[in-house]
Amino acid sequence: MATMVAAGEARPAVQLEITSLLSRLETSGCRFNRNGVWHTASEAKSHLLTKLHYIEDRTTLVSTEQFIELAGSKSSFSGKPYLVQCGNAAAQPSAVWLTAQLHSLRAASKRP
C-alpha cells in the first residue's frame, strides 16, 4: 500500500491528475456500478469527489494511483469492487479503467 502522510490536500500535480481523471469519467458516457447499482458517470464523479474529500480529511494523497486504490476501486462500505461499463463493452473493474485513463492522460501530457 502507498505511504500515507499527514492530512491535507494532495500536491498540485496529483490534484490536477485526479481532477482530469474525474473529468474524463464524467464525460465518458460510461456507466459506473457501485454495490450492484448502475450509476451515470456524472453520479460516479460526484461520489468519488465525496470519497476524495473524506480521504483528504484524514491523510494526504501522495499519488493518483493512491486515489484510485483508496477511493476509486471499491466500496468502503461493502468492499465490493466498482465496475465501469462503456457502450457495449463488458464491464471492467474501475481500478483497471481509471488506471488506463491515467496512463492515457500522462502520455498525452508528454506529447509535444
Rank of each mutant, 00 (worst) to 15 (best):
A2N: 10
E26N: 04
Q92Y: 04
A91S: 10
W38H: 09
L105P: 06
L21I: 01
S104M: 13
R111C: 09
I18H: 02
G36K: 07
K74S: 06
L83N: 05
R106T: 08
G29N: 06
V14E: 05
S46W: 13
G29E: 03
G87C: 12
A90D: 07
E69H: 12
L52W: 06
S20I: 00
S104V: 12
I55N: 01
G72Q: 14
V14H: 05
F77K: 14
P112L: 15
A6K: 12
V37W: 07
C30Q: 02
A100M: 11
R24A: 04
A71Q: 06
H103N: 12
V5H: 12
N35M: 09
L25K: 09
A71Y: 01
S20Y: 03
T59W: 10
I18P: 00
E69V: 08
A108M: 06
Q101K: 11
N88R: 11
K45G: 08
T99W: 05
T3D: 14
H47Y: 14
S75H: 02
Q66V: 01
A95M: 07
A7P: 07
V84L: 00
E43A: 15
G8D: 12
A90W: 06
A13N: 11
F77R: 14
A71S: 13
I68E: 01
T40V: 03
T64D: 01
D57N: 15
S109K: 05
A90H: 12
S23W: 07
S46N: 13
V62G: 14
L48R: 06
C86S: 05
W38A: 08
E17N: 09
W97H: 03
V14M: 12
M4K: 12
A7D: 13
L25H: 03
N33G: 07
F67D: 00
V37I: 14
K74N: 04
T99Q: 09
S20A: 13
E9P: 10
T59E: 15
S42E: 10
R106H: 05
L98A: 03
A2V: 06
A7L: 09
S78G: 05
L102Y: 03
R11A: 10
S42R: 15
L83G: 02
A107E: 15
S23M: 05
Y54S: 01
W38T: 06
P93L: 07
S78K: 04
A91W: 01
L21H: 00
M4F: 13
T40I: 03
P112D: 12
V62R: 12
H103S: 14
A7K: 11
L16W: 08
I18D: 05
Y82M: 01
L16C: 09
S28A: 09
C86Q: 09
T50N: 00
A71W: 00
R11W: 01
L21G: 02
K110Y: 10
L98D: 00
V96N: 11
F77A: 14
L105R: 03
Q101H: 06
H39K: 11
S78H: 02
T19S: 12
P12I: 00
V62I: 14
E9Q: 15
K45H: 03
T60Q: 15
T99Y: 03
T50Y: 01
T3N: 15
L16Y: 03
K74A: 10
T27K: 11
C30R: 08
Q15R: 10
A6Y: 08
K74G: 00
